[in-house]
Structures are given as structure tokens and as C-alpha cells.
Design a protein around this nucleic acid. Structure first.
Lengths: 145, 145
DNA sequence: ATTGACCTTCACACAGATGTGAGGGTTCGA
DNA sequence: TCGAACCCTCACATCTGTGTGAAGGTCAAT
């Protein structure tokens, strides 16, 4: 497919698809007239790239990480130098850090939303003083909604 | 404590601490001479902010999310308008997406690293083509190196 | 009183991801 | 053969998170 279709199917603008190529993240074929030609696999690839970008990884890192994630489980490493391995370990750890941070904050948001939905607990009674979470009182009082 | 100490203890530059304030993420006190004065709680707060920034959230979103995460479990919502609730739900979902993406890619990296460390598996059998770069030939032929 | 290490605001600079548009080819259907 | 709808490259613009430095105030120790 050409760039327009890929853009439509992935939600990435044409500009961005060219940018990802410029950054070495993807390398589409070129047809005789110079048009970029993308295979089906690029749809997933772009989704993966956009997900990682959105999760805070810069293209420079994504570029290093992508080759190890070849779609058809192509687990044969082009080089696997010690530096590359060290880089991968470092990035893996950073990703774990991010996951921890995100999960923790997401759970806090969830807890907040749960509490809010539980019929806004009257702030008049029991001003809630900095103790534990939800401190017993406003728990799920059977009200389903 | 003043900005220098907080910077040192959090790893954020003074410039950034002022920037976070300008973006409305934090609101330190001011002492008589105009110096910013931060309480202990700001150390965690800054760590949280930096973690979320690193995980791809813009300050605009962090600003909306932080108040629901008040350290002393102050679960009494200042407003809780329907729009705010919708925003929180949206962001919670986006965070879940990010977590999924990160976990998936991290696990793939882990798998790759495991495979690499397991004495490089012979690629000679089943060349795995699919557009891979090294095209089979010069693969590690069982040579443990 | 001066020095040094803090602090203040202001402002310009930069990199990375993305938008926008100009100027120009290709392809295809009316 | 024309026009629409694609594609190309190039280049400048924008937004965000940061860095850096200038010009100046505060404070403690010498």
C-alpha cells in the first residue's frame, strides 16, 4: 500500500510516516515512480512505534529496540554486542520503572473514581484527616451505581 | 527547604522546578525575602511528576490528575464535575494502554535477552526470512561466540 | 564592607515530535 | 487532454520540556 492508505489505517499523518523513516524506524520499498510502498506488516509496526513514542521513548531508543522485536519471532540477533545488550537491559529496566509509575497512578485514579461514584461522601461529617484511604466510612454501601 | 536542596534531592534542575510551578503543578510557599520554600512532601511530589512526564503525560494532564492523588489520601474532591470525571476516566484508560504497550515490548526485550544469553541458538536451521536484514548466510553457525 | 553562595526574574536557545504549505511529478478517469 | 487525487522533497513553524546565562537581590561568614 502507499503512504496515504497506511496513514489512514494507522492514524499517523503522512508527515509522521516520512519522519519515522527519516529516523530509521522503518524502511519501506520504493516503486519505480519513487512512491513509498508499504507491506501489511507496517500497520502493526507503526502502531508499535506510536505506542512506544506515546509512552515516552524517543525514536533513538525505539530504533535500537525494534530489531529485537521482529514480528515473525525472528530471534536471531544481527550482532548482539555487549554494548547493545547493556542498552537493552537498561531500557528494559526503564520501561519497568515507567510501568510501575503508571500503574500506581492509574490505580490511584481508579480509587478516586470509585470513591466519587459511590455517591459523593458528605464532606461535612468526618472531614477525612490524612489517615488511611477511605478510612472505613464511605465504603461500598451496597449502592450498585 | 529551598530550591537548591530540592533540586539536589530530586535530580530536577532548579529551572525545572520553577517550570513545574509555572505550569501549576506545584505551589511552594514564599519566605519573606521571596525565596521559594518547599516542604518535605515536595520530594515525593516531584518524583511523581517526573515519573509521569517520563511516561509520556504532558504537564497539562498531570495537573489535572495530581489533585486526586493528594498525599494524605485526602479523598475529598474539590469539585468532581462530570467533565473532570470523564477526563480522569479517559486518562486512566490511556495509562492502561501505555502500560500494556510497555509491558508487551519489555517482555519481548526480556525474551530476546534470555535467548541471547542462552548460548546463541543456531539460526542455520530454519533461516527465517521475512525481510530480515542479515539474510541467513553469515548467521552464528552454532559458534558459541 | 566585601565575598561567595545562595536566591529572584527574564529571555533567548535547543531538540524532538508534529503541522503546514509551496513547488512539482504521476496516474487515472471523464 | 484536462482535472482530481495521489505522491515527492524541502523548508519553515509550533509546542513542550529543558538548558543557559544575564542582571540583580539576600544572607552568612570573613
Amino acid at each position: 500500500m502507499r503512504i496515504g492508505e497506511l496513514a489512514e489505517r494507522t492514524g499517523a499523518s503522512r508527515r509522521l510516516l516520512r519522519y519515522y523513516e527519516e529516523q530509521g524506524l522503518i524502511t519501506p520499498e520504493r516503486s519505480a515512480n519513487g512512491y513509498r510502498e508499504y507491506g501489511e506488516a507496517f500497520v502493526d509496526r507503526i502502531a508499535q512505534i506510536r505506542g512506544l513514542l506515546d509512552a515516552g521513548l524517543p525514536t533513538r531508543i525505539i530504533k535500537q529496540v525494534l530489531p529485537c522485536l521482529n514480528t515473525p519471532r525472528a530471534l536471531y540477533f544481527p550482532d548482539a554486542t555487549p554494548e547493545m545488550i547493556a542498552t537493552l537491559e537498561r531500557e528494559r529496566d526503564r520501561m519497568s520503572d515507567r510501568i510501575r509509575c503508571l500503574a500506581q497512578n492509574r490505580d490511584a485514579i481508579s480509587a478516586y473514581l470509585d470513591a466519587v461514584r459511590d455517591g459523593t461522601p458528605p464532606p461535612t461529617e468526618a472531614p477525612i484527616r490524612t489517615g488511611g484511604p477511605v478510612d472505613g466510612t464511605a465504603g461500598r454501601t451496597g449502592v450498585t451505581r
